[in-house]
Each structure stands twice: as structure tokens, then as C-alpha cells.
Design a protein around this nucleic acid. Structure first.
Length: 383
DNA sequence: AATACGGGGTA
DNA sequence: TACCCAGTATT
């Protein structure tokens, strides 16, 4: 597995020495509070530190411990998460906070095995918490570690090949400093993020370059081979922004296991045919439509969004319009008829579209970035 | 074993 | 533009 001429313990030693000497960018880990470590790890999943840091600060300030997070409303949590993406992380965060607070007396499990059972905590996060907070000798293998080990041991295709991925894990176990797993794990991740970067790694200042096969052969750019890209699917969405005579509009909560689950958007059509029928009907009424198109590119799909804004009498007339366009009935209630999230959830089976004052939109409800982008272009001033 | 799930940063 | 990111849950 490893080159016997180069004992791995000195690789680990070099790494730890380097880690001890340079400034750590994640100070909240120092006190090893499982709640804070957990919170930061969830926020940082698939997220750069600079992007996640302000979110962590806001969460830690608003919810200093697991009980305060558990007692929060889910919509409130999603609101604080707004814009960060992968919203199931926020829903699972809240679910797990309630579980730890209510069933475990506020104490997180101490082992990777038990941490792993909590919602939103997988292989990586359980290992990170167990090693950092409880000094359990388990390695973390994230994207950084994968890249570092791929280069050191010349394992080319760990991102696509299961067998090679397993090799990476074995090396990670072998390298781990069992007397200091928390620091070691942070050290190897930080090496990947600061030195052993995907592009232009800084091998000249790398503390373990003398152990690195890719550096030795000047082939760092070939390791690891890029992950096979998935085809982005195009998808058209037509958001409807009716402006009622009373100055209100409509909002809907997304409940399907689709994108933006748990967030709020304008009611939308996803069939070209339905959109055309709606446009035709509005034209008959001599009702002008203002259309703004936005192309929203995500990692797995390209959303072509048309925002259709139009003036209409009231929600009753909108129901007729919707019915005409889609052939489906809808039931729309007033926002102030909903006093809590619970009401909203129980109402969802019938209809989850509700009438709302423009001002309320930004304050109470978590919106996808796409909707925020639209509102930046076209604010919803009252008429 | 694949696929879905956001959004922003970087070269 | 293409790729990557301190991954997990679902299918």
C-alpha cells in the first residue's frame, strides 16, 4: 500500500507540524463544542468556507445551543438558510436539533456509529464530529482528502471508481495519527484546501511534497481525474405574479421532493401549453402581461424561468384563470388566515397557495435565489 | 450504484 | 465555459 522506504508516520508528523504553525481559519472548532462543530460541518457541506462563514455566524448568534435551535420554527430556520442551497440540510438540521434536544437531553452521541444515525449526518460529518470533539480515531474523507491522497499515492480515478475510492479510505486509515485524530483530520483537509488545490497546487511550499508521487513525477494536474460530468437538463418554469386590486399577490410553499422543497415561490406552471392558454385568456381580457426571463444555472439543471406579472381583480378571478389554463381547481386562502406553520402544513393537502401582502414576502418566507434575483430586477411595489 | 439536490467562486 | 466545493438521502 504505502512505500516502505518512506514511513507514513513522518508524513503525518510533517503534516501536523505544518498545521500547528499556520493560522487556522475555523476558530469555532477550538472549543470542541459538538453543537458548534456539527452546525459548521452541516453548513460547510459542499460549500466554501467564505460562503458558509456568515451563515454560521448568524446561526450561532441566533441559536447559541441545540435547544434554542430545536425550539425554533422550521420556516425561521429556512429563512436563515435562505440563499445557501441544498435546503434539505436546513430541514435535517432542525429535525436533528429537535431529536437531540428532546430525546438525548441536548447531548450529541459520542461515537461515529451513533452520530451516523442522525438525519443529515453521513460518513464524512460523523467522522469529523467524532474525531474533533471526542478524539475517536476515524479518518475523514472529503473532497480535499480524496485529492491529497490521490496525488500522494498516485490513485488516478478515485472520484469515479469505487475500488479506487476504497483504496483512498485505506490510506486515510493508515495515515491517521491515532493519538491526535481531530487535529490530523483538520490538517489534511486544510492542506487540500490551501496547498493541494484542484488547480495550481503550491507544491513548493507543501509540507509533504517529499512523500508525494504526483509531485515526484510532475503530474499533479493528472490527479485525480475529474469526476464524470452529468448532463444538465433544461427545464422551463413559468411563475405567475398576479397583482390584485387590494395590492396583494400570491405565494406557495413547495412540498414535493423536487428542487427548493420547503421554500416559497410564486405559483408556477411548468407546461408551455398551460402558459399559452393563460396568456391567451389574459389577452382576451385586454389585460397586459409583463414578462421577465431569467436563466438560472444550477449544478444539475438549467432553469429557464419566465416571470409573468399581470393585474387582476382578486384571487377568485385568479382561480378561474388557473382553472382555465390547467384544467385543475385550486383553493386559495388569505395569508392572515394562517397563524402558524402547523396550519400551513395541515392546509397543504387542499391547497398551498395563499394570498399575501407584498411587504410580508421578504420578511417571513424563505425564497430561492432565483426568486430573489427576480425581485431585485422587478420590486413588488404597491399599486 | 446512480441520481437529485443550490449556489457561488475560480481559472 | 467548465469544474469544484469541509456530502447526504433517495431511488
Amino acid at each position: 500500500m504505502s512505500d516502505p522506504a518512506k514511513p507514513v508516520h513522518s508524513l503525518s508528523e510533517s503534516l501536523l507540524r505544518w498545521y500547528g504553525e499556520h493560522k487556522r481559519p475555523l476558530p469555532w472548532r477550538k472549543n470542541k463544542d459538538p453543537y458548534k462543530v456539527w452546525l459548521s460541518e452541516i453548513i460547510l457541506q459542499q460549500t466554501r468556507i467564505d460562503q458558509g462563514r456568515p451563515y454560521f455566524e448568524r446561526f450561532a448568534a441566533k441559536y447559541p445551543d441545540v435547544h434554542s435551535l430545536a425550539n425554533a420554527d422550521e420556516v425561521e430556520v429556512l429563512n436563515l438558510w435562505q440563499g445557501l442551497g441544498y435546503y434539505s440540510r436546513a430541514r435535517n438540521l432542525h429535525h436533528t436539533a429537535k431529536f437531540v434536544s428532546g430525546k438525548l437531553g441536548g447531548n450529541f452521541p459520542h461515537t461515529q456509529k451513533d452520530l451516523r444515525k442522525l438525519k443529515g449526518i453521513g460518513e464524512y460529518t460523523s467522522a469529523a464530529i467524532a474525531s474533533i470533539c471526542f478524539s475517536e480515531a476515524v479518518p475523514v474523507v472529503d473532497g480535499n482528502v480524496m485529492r491529497v491522497i490521490s496525488r500522494i499515492y498516485l490513485i488516478p480515478d478515485a472520484l469515479n471508481d469505487t475500488a479506487q475510492k476504497a483504496k483512498i479510505y485505506k490510506h486515510a486509515v493508515n495515515l491517521l495519527d491515532r493519538s491526535n485524530p481531530g487535529d490530523f483530520n483538520q490538517a489534511i483537509m486544510e492542506l487540500g484546501s490551501l496547498i493541494c488545490k484542484p488547480f495550481k497546487p503550491e507544491c513548493e511550499i507543501c509540507p509533504v511534497s517529499s512523500f508525494c508521487g504526483a509531485y515526484k513525477h510532475q503530474k499533479t494536474t493528472e490527479y485525480p481525474k475529474p469526476k464524470i460530468k452529468l448532463v444538465k437538463k433544461e427545464r422551463s418554469l413559468f411563475f405567475l405574479i398576479p397583482v390584485f386590486n387590494n395590492g396583494c399577490s400570491l405565494l406557495t410553499r413547495r412540498n414535493t421532493s423536487d428542487i427548493w422543497k420547503g421554500l416559497y415561490t410564486f405559483p408556477l406552471l411548468d407546461k408551455e401549453k398551460h402558459k399559452e392558454r393563460l396568456q391567451r385568456k389574459l389577452a382576451e381580457k385586454a389585460c397586459p402581461i409583463e414578462t421577465i426571463s431569467i436563466k438560472h444555472i444550477l449544478s444539475h439543471q438549467i432553469i429557464l424561468a419566465d416571470f409573468l406579472r399581470f393585474q387582476i381583480k382578486d384571487r377568485g378571478e385568479f382561480c378561474d384563470l388557473w382553472n382555465y389554463a390547467t384544467g385543475e381547481m385550486v383553493n386559495i386562502v388569505k395569508e392572515d388566515a394562517i397563524s402558524s406553520t402547523k396550519d400551513l402544513l395541515s392546509m397543504e393537502e387542499k391547497s398551498n397557495i395563499f394570498e399575501i401582502e407584498f411587504d410580508e414576502l421578504f420578511l417571513k418566507y424563505p425564497l430561492p435565489r432565483l426568486i430573489s434575483k427576480y425581485l431585485e430586477k422587478r420590486p413588488l411595489e404597491k399599486i
